[in-house]
Design a protein around this nucleic acid. Structure first.
Length: 224
DNA sequence: ATTTAGATCCTCT
DNA sequence: GAGGATCTAAATG
């Protein structure tokens, strides 16, 4: 008697945690390119001998002064978004809705305030620690631990102490991984930016078609 | 399957 | 004083 082959993707996923850290130049590329290229890369947080890591499966691009959905819309420069105005390759972490943190990767040269919001990961390492940080029931699937920007920050232990973290040398780094095929990537409008007028329709959310960890609608661009 | 309400507090006007 | 780059549970069709 033969067992049916198991086609369920194994989570946590196997990933190369010895891969090189992404070089600083990676983050100088155009923001939409960085957003797509980040899919599949590994976000790692090492702290006090503990480690949590996840494969990036969903992101959103935010493009500076001209993008009404961005924190830097219209050239606003404040204490909160200061890191977005700085050099590429830093982590921009902010607190929102009274209870959640969101983390972004800053792109482009200093003075060009653009960033990529990380919206979902697939757990790669440190799942027990993620469960403790999330305080979820034991049966919750691993993929749900890091689904959504607020959830992934809690699971990864990322908060405002990480704001400004240098992604080449800080406690939080991003490791290189093979580039995803473009056919594995879908796009849609960004989530939660209805206040941005016509910019809310821009298809600047990118996600891996086959990932179980993607948050929100797995819809491709709707007709305009 | 989709909608709603409530939690909760920092940031900027 | 208002509202948010969110999340969850509960209610509803």
């Amino acid at each position: 008697m033969r067992l049916r082959p198991d086609t369920t993707p194994a989570l946590p996923l196997a990933a190369d945690l010895t891969a090189p850290i992404l070089p600083g130049e990676f983050y100088l590329q155009p923001t939409l390119r960085v957003a797509r290229a980040l899919l599949g890369k590994i976000l790692v947080h090492r702290r006090r001998g503990s480690i949590t890591a996840g494969r990036i499966v969903e992101v959103e691009a935010y493009r500076g002064p001209g993008d009404r959905a961005a924190h830097t819309a219209g050239g606003r420069r404040t204490a909160r978004n200061e890191v977005m105005w700085g050099p590429a390759g830093r982590l921009y972490v902010y607190f929102t809705y009274g209870m959640h943190h969101c983390c972004n990767v800053v792109t482009r040269a200093a003075g060009v305030p653009e960033a990529v919001l990380v919206r979902a990961l697939e757990p790669v390492a440190g799942v027990p620690l993620m469960r403790r940080r999330r305080r979820v029931r034991a049966e919750l699937p691993a993929a749900a631990l890091t689904r959504g920007p607020g959830n992934l920050c809690r699971a990864m232990g990322i908060d405002r102490r990480c704001d400004g973290n240098d992604l080449r040398a800080g406690a939080v780094v991003i490791l290189d991984a093979p580039r995803m095929r473009s056919t594995a990537i879908l796009a849609s409008p960004r989530i939660g930016v209805a206040y941005a007028g016509s910019d809310a329709l821009l298809p600047w959310r990118f996600f891996l078609r086959d990932s179980l960890a993607v948050s929100g609608p797995r819809r491709v661009e709707p007709p305009r």
